[in-house]
Design a protein around this nucleic acid. Sequence first.
DNA 1: CGAAAATTTGACATGACTCAACTGGAGTGG
DNA 2: CCACTCCAGTTGAGTCATGTCAAATTTTCG
Lengths: 193, 193
Amino acid sequence: MDVTPLIDHLNSFLPLTEEETSELQKRVSQKTVKRRQFILSSGEVCKHYNFIVEGCFKMYKVDDTAKEHNLHFAVENQWITDIGSFHSEQPSQLYIEAVEPSSILQISKSDLIHFYEHNIKFNRIFRVMVEDEFVRLQNRLLQTISTTAEQRYLEFIEQYPDLFNRISNVQVASYLGITPEFLSNIRKKLSQS
Amino acid sequence: MDVTPLIDHLNSFLPLTEEETSELQKRVSQKTVKRRQFILSSGEVCKHYNFIVEGCFKMYKVDDTAKEHNLHFAVENQWITDIGSFHSEQPSQLYIEAVEPSSILQISKSDLIHFYEHNIKFNRIFRVMVEDEFVRLQNRLLQTISTTAEQRYLEFIEQYPDLFNRISNVQVASYLGITPEFLSNIRKKLSQS
DNA sequence: CGAAAATTTGACATGACTCAACTGGAGTGG
DNA sequence: CCACTCCAGTTGAGTCATGTCAAATTTTCG
């Protein structure tokens, strides 16, 4: 098992000592995930913080008319977790599904708590990580309540050009909060002008 | 200056010792804010974490057509801060304005860093606080991309009955991402059924 | 009281959804 | 290698959700 990508990622927040690194190595487990496989299903408690080594995931809710609503995409060197369910230990209402064949590193809650209690760095790293995600989410919400679908699409392409090539337009539409048909309209209109 | 409300609030996350309490007392400053007064304006760097002792604030963006878009309301015993600007020390694009005559307690960045570095509890408390806010924001985004304005209005009333009585419908509309006129339509329709 | 802001109303315009049909790859099994 | 299926993507017609603008009315607060 190679935890290098995770170590590198954490080092980018705060440098870790060798001891911390080896401690981490002991408490992380590796998992290979096939395309379309779930690492969290609605109704389950989210038991892990998931760090993506390779691949791509989506996190979404399914509403009562069976439509998917995408909250988040994540690729290599990012985390994907239902933080609410993870901390409250209540059933999640979300799914986390692999969009591509993937490889992840998982940390369980008890192990994360171990790090929180024995090492000030981890509190700090995870606080900063959540703050960064919070800011991103806040900007997206602001955009969602203040702009039109076309603008949101354009900004999405600009902000995540990599993602844009890896996921279907159905997924993008769901992320933007519109129907695939309407996204198709927008794309047509944009290609004509 | 009475910091009791803040102490109580922090104690609800993790109990503080007397020493921590008195340390906090030294590093917090009190401020009285009039209705319509700003504690943050677009273009400024957000220099404080603001804890509300009394009153109510809104945080919003003004777009290029001069319309306000409300990101957040906060009342007694809650925090209101542009976390992004606070940590990056970049100019904020947001305003934080008192909706009522208010009283707040402020912690500057250097003081917060002092707590982070000298006391593991504060990292922990602020990590948990941001996580909670993150979950709230995530649910709101999910709701925004998956439901109609009428549903969002009904859920808003249900979730924040207190707030609902303290702020104008113009503000609520801006929070829900719709125009005041359309909110007026919704309210009329609901009162008829 | 008086000014400013909030709320309501209605006519009209545009954004966005629904449904159904069609097109065109990307696998898959024979 | 072909025929087949299965999705993703597109198209268009009709409908509903929401926005714009302007004006009248009511409320709020200094």
